[in-house]
């Protein structure tokens, strides 16, 4: 009797300690974003004199200051202009290639597959100078081509979609479609692609996030302020507004809040997708 009670107490104590630890860590994760939103509603002068826990009434003012001299919404549109084609392309070619590797035997299949996998190890920065000169030679500097085209080449997508095709697409489906005289490309488009949807959805999220957050490549390839995507616009807020921190907080808020909202809608899928690369990779 004594043992069970003490065990129950120690169990409860352990639970309490763990929950406190987790709660405090959760606060550390959220507080910077909370402070960001609160500070976005206070004037720069007010911010330089203390800490605020409640929102103020300067948000509109700060916002006006922000958009007067920055291209924050341009940045948003530019990021979308880059991220959408990259995501669509990475998913489509990832599926096409992954399916090709999964369902067909051809000479050099394994060497090519592992060769593609190996390119994951190449740090993107290693090719920066060459990419810059390549884009310059083609006359596409200061356009999004130099970001979009290399972005579409996503070896991880090929890897994941091959693995998924291996396990989820029955051969019998393709066989019966072939019996009906269906062409190979049509089998892929109208039978396989719809079946790959769950995997594609996960890959789409990660490829979108990756390209949306990219900083160094647009920094190198784009040189007109109006054309910069959001991460570059945000990184330069400090240069534009030496001291007007209220406006900078608004700018950062505009870049962060949409991500938080999307994350809480898709969090199950995103967290589930995280282990995709690790389990087999």
């Amino acid at each position: 009797m004594y043992t069970t009670t003490s065990m129950r107490t120690s169990e409860a104590l352990k639970k309490f300690v763990v929950f406190t630890l987790f709660g405090l860590t959760a606060v550390v994760c959220i507080v910077p974003f909370f402070t960001m939103i609160i500070n976005a509603t206070h004037s720069a002068r007010a911010l330089s004199s203390g800490v605020y826990l409640l929102p103020g009434d300067m948000f509109i003012e700060n916002y006006r200051t922000l958009i007067r001299r920055t291209y924050i919404w341009h940045g948003f549109m530019n990021s979308a202009t880059i991220a959408i084609p990259v995501t669509v392309g990475a998913c489509y070619f990832g599926a096409l290639t992954g399916y090709g590797f999964s369902r067909f035997r051809f000479k050099g299949r394994n060497i090519l597959f592992y060769g593609i996998l190996g390119t994951i190890m190449i740090p993107p920065q290693a090719a920066l100078v060459g990419l810059f000169e390549f884009a310059r030679g083609l006359g596409v500097l200061d356009t999004y081509w130099g970001i979009i085209l290399p972005g579409i080449v996503n070896p991880q997508a090929v890897f994941w979609l091959r693995m998924y095709t291996d396990s989820a697409i029955p051969y019998s489906l393709m066989e019966s479609a072939r019996m009906e005289g269906c062409g190979e490309l049509r089998i892929f488009h109208s039978i396989v692609l719809p079946l790959l949807k769950p995997a594609i959805a996960t890959i789409a999220i990660f490829s979108f996030v990756q390209i949306w957050n990219n900083y160094i490549i647009p920094l190198v390839l784009i040189n007109t302020r109006r054309k910069y995507p959001l991460p570059v616009q945000i990184a330069q807020l400090d240069d534009v507004w030496q001291q007007d921190y209220g406006a900078i907080y608004v700018g950062v808020t505009i870049s962060v809040v949409p991500i938080i909202i999307v994350f809480f809608i898709l969090s199950k899928r995103i967290i589930g997708g995280l282990t995709l690369g690790a389990v087999k990779g």
Binding site: T25, I30, M36, Y215, L230, I234, G251, V256
Partner: peptide, 17 residues
């Protein structure tokens, strides 16, 4: 979800913040 959240946010936004 909360522990993972900072990982998704743009690094330049976090650094500016």
């Amino acid at each position: 979800a909360v522990f993972y959240l900072p990982n998704l946010i743009t690094a330049t936004s976090i650094a500016t913040l």
